[in-house]
Write a protein that binds this DNA or RNA. Sequence first.
DNA 1: GGATAATTGTTACATTATTACATTAGTTAT
DNA 2: ATAACTAATGTAATAATGTAACAATTATCC
Lengths: 177, 177
Amino acid sequence: MCNKRSNNAFPTPGHNHKQCLNDAIDKARKVFSLRKLRLTPLREQIYRQILTSHDAIGAYDILDRMRRQGREIAPITAYRILDLLHDMGLIHRLELQNAYYACYRDHEDDKNFIALICRGCGTIAELVDRKVSRVFEALEKEAGFTEEKRVLEVQGLCRSCRDSRKGGNSEKEPLNA
Amino acid sequence: MCNKRSNNAFPTPGHNHKQCLNDAIDKARKVFSLRKLRLTPLREQIYRQILTSHDAIGAYDILDRMRRQGREIAPITAYRILDLLHDMGLIHRLELQNAYYACYRDHEDDKNFIALICRGCGTIAELVDRKVSRVFEALEKEAGFTEEKRVLEVQGLCRSCRDSRKGGNSEKEPLNA
DNA sequence: GGATAATTGTTACATTATTACATTAGTTAT
DNA sequence: ATAACTAATGTAATAATGTAACAATTATCC
């Protein structure tokens, strides 16, 4: 997931985002430091797996990639680190896919985002809009509901996938597995 | 899930909703009929399991309940019927819980709802609001995104759980399992 | 009654996630 | 520097959720 694209937009498919990695790792180091925890080599390696994928990837995808890089870890180890990265706001989880992707925004205190998931290319875009937050707050207040966690996910086709394939699905299997 | 409560509200906890069952089954029979499919005894039994629970229940919960009622079925059988009921709009799926609950609204063509999930009592309330739909449509149009599926779920505490327990969790385990 | 589609069964397996406990590595205080 | 402490990872087993492939049965329609 790249932080060099404009806000609220899908990045150009296939673009090179190696340049974003160092920034993200630096930021992560700071966040860990603030919580007096360590960005260990293992944690960094897993975070990099997620950073270098535009798609969201699942816990067992991470195990596979680690193995290919010569390190075998147990599921629980991946989940522990994923939970930690998630708690720190460095990654987000897609409930629709049981998968994780890197959050490229600075959203310290803000969990008001919508995840747009393209089933064509797998890319995730996050939208942030105060109107959405306000409407949710108003509705919940009216219902007497105290919010603790919010999941806003939309699956569909991004512009380039729609244009290039008219809704077809030739390049890649569907993502709702 | 009971259809005798006012719209957009949590029902009184512990209320009796047996009275709603027949209406729901009648409606289901009509929906099946329209699609030239049958509401078989098995399908009806599973639908009743869901109708008679305010909580969302998982596929394997249904297997358990069926077994207690003397009928052993395989997971795939439950999933097939759940998918069918879901396609027909009779039940909804909570991605946050991998579980299903009965939809008590008449929402033929409308998938614009927000599920409020109380982690105290497990009750699900659905909110419907055109403002939300409009904002989503506008944002997606701007992003060039073609929506196919939308998940809007909020987990938290309903009024009575908040009032009676101040956020505590003594009566029941959390629902995010 | 035979063809056809709908429904359920059977078996096996794939995927996702957690529990419990042991071990190792880093940090702190003396 | 080492004992005591916390953070981090390992190990092993298993729970929970979901699907594939194909067979058998049941209803419907001509």
